[in-house]
Simulated assay, not measured.
Amino acid sequence: MKINLLTVGCFSLSMISGFVSAETLKAYGRVHAGVQYSDISSESETSIESYASRLGFKGDTKVNDGLEIFFKYEFEVNPADNDKDGKSGENITARSQYVGMKGSLGQILIGRDDTAMKKSQGKVDMMNDFEADIKTLFAGENRLGDTIQYSTPELNHLKFVVSYIAEDNSKQKGKSGLSVAAMYGDSKLKKTPIYISVAHDEEVAGQDINRITVQGKMGNATLGGVYQQSEKVDSSSKVDSFMVSASYKIKSYKLLAQYQDSDGASGKLSDSGNATSLGVEKSLSKQARMYFWYSQFDLDNNAEQEHMALTLRYDF
C-alpha cells in the first residue's frame, strides 16, 4: 500500500500539536489559483494555473528569557497540476525550510531560505507570483539551500541581513556565495511611510549583483522602484535592469500597475526586453481576495507574449 509522504507528515504534526500549545506550532498556507489566457507567438491557450500555492508549518520554543529556537517547513503545492491528476507527488516542491535561533543579538538560521538580495525587494513587486513577477527579467531572485543567514536586530528601523551559501550548493558550481542587504523602514509600509534597501550578491548562483529598492506610501497611493546591475561571474558583460510599480487603494479595491525593463538576458525568460502589467485586486475578507490582471512582454529575441487571468486567493 502506497502512503503519501505529505499525508504522513501532516498526521505526525497534528499528533505533535496535541502536546504543545498553539503558540509554538502553527500550520499555515495559501491556495491561489485561476483561469489564465496566454497568447505566445500567435498561439493561444486557456489554462487553470496555480500561483505559488503553499502549505507550511512553523514553530518556536523559548530556551530562556533571551533566546528562542524556531523552525519552518514550507512546501509549494500545485492544486492545478495535471501530471497524473497530481497523484505522482511531483506537484509538491520545497520552499523555505530551516531551523534557527534568535535573541537580543539578532537571529541566525540554517537551511533553505530567500537570500538577502531577494528579501531586499520587500513588497515592491506588484505582480509577485504572476507571469510578470520581477524574476522574469531580473537575476537575483534566489531561494537557496546550504545557507546560513544572519539578521541583525532592528535599530531605528534599520537592519542588515547576510546570507552565506556553501560551495556544495548545486547552483554555486564549486564556489561559495555571499548575499548582503541593508534595509531601512517597514517593507509593509505600516510602521514607516518609506522603505529603502541596498543589496549586493557576490558569486551567488553565478551572478554578481547590485540592487537599490525604494518604495513609499502617500495616502492611498504606493509608489516603488528598483534599479539593478548584474554580471555573470564568468563574463564581463553587465546587464542593467529597472522596475517601477504603483498601486492605488479605493475602498476594497486596489489598482495595480508595473513596468520592468532589462537590456540583457538575466532573468527567468533568458531574454532582454520589457514587461507592462495592469491589474485589480479585490479584497473579499481578511483571508480572501481576487485578482484580475493583464501582462504584455515585448522581448528582443523571442516572440511577444500576452497573459491575462482571473484568480482567487485564500490565506490561512
Score class of each variant (00 low, 15 high):
Glu43Ser: 15
Ile196Ser: 11
Lys188Asp: 11
Ala132Cys: 14
Asn82Ala: 14
Ala182Phe: 07
Val35Tyr: 12
Arg30Trp: 04
Leu278Gln: 10
Met183Ile: 12
Leu5Gly: 02
Gly267Cys: 08
Gly206Cys: 00
Leu5Pro: 00
Lys238Met: 01
Val124Gln: 00
Gln107His: 08
Gln107Phe: 05
Gln149Arg: 05
Ser17Asn: 08
Ser42Thr: 05
Val35Leu: 15
Asn64His: 09
His307Val: 15
Gly34Cys: 12
Gly185Ile: 04
Gln296Arg: 05
Lys171Trp: 00
Asn128Val: 11
Val35Pro: 04
Tyr164Phe: 13
Val239Pro: 09
Gly145Pro: 00
Pro153Phe: 01
Asn169Arg: 07
Tyr28His: 06
Lys2Gln: 11
Ser272Tyr: 10
Phe316Val: 06
Glu49Lys: 14
Ala199His: 07
Gly174Gln: 00
Thr152Lys: 05
Tyr259Cys: 07
Met117Ala: 12
Ser270Glu: 13
Lys251Thr: 11
Glu141Ser: 07
Val124Ala: 03
Ile165Leu: 06
Ala33Gln: 15
Gly273Val: 02
Gln228Arg: 15
Ala303Phe: 05
Val20Asp: 07
Gln207Cys: 01
Lys286Met: 02
Ala22Glu: 10
Ser262Arg: 08
Thr192Asn: 01
Val31Glu: 06
Ala265Phe: 04
Ile134Met: 07
Gly122Phe: 09
Val214Phe: 03
Asn301Arg: 10
Lys72Asp: 04
Ala181Arg: 05
Pro193Gly: 02
Asp81Trp: 10
Met1Gly: 13
His200Asn: 07
Leu67Gly: 08
Thr152Ala: 04
Ala199Trp: 10
Ala265Gly: 09
Asn274Tyr: 14
Gln97Ser: 08
Lys87Ala: 13
Lys173Pro: 03
Leu25Ile: 01
Arg289Asp: 09
Ala181Pro: 02
Leu284Glu: 06
Ala27Asn: 07
Val204Tyr: 06
Ser53Lys: 03
Leu25Phe: 00
Ser21Pro: 03
Ala205Val: 01
Lys191Asp: 07
Gly224Glu: 13
His307Tyr: 15
Leu155Cys: 02
Glu68Cys: 10
Asn128Ser: 09
Ser187Asn: 10
Leu6Arg: 09
Ser235Asn: 03
Thr46Trp: 10
Cys10Ala: 15
Phe130Asp: 14
Ile212Leu: 14
Lys268Gln: 11
Leu310Gly: 08
Val8Trp: 11
Glu90Asp: 11
Phe130Ser: 14
Thr213Val: 12
Phe242Tyr: 09
Ile48Tyr: 14
Pro153Lys: 01
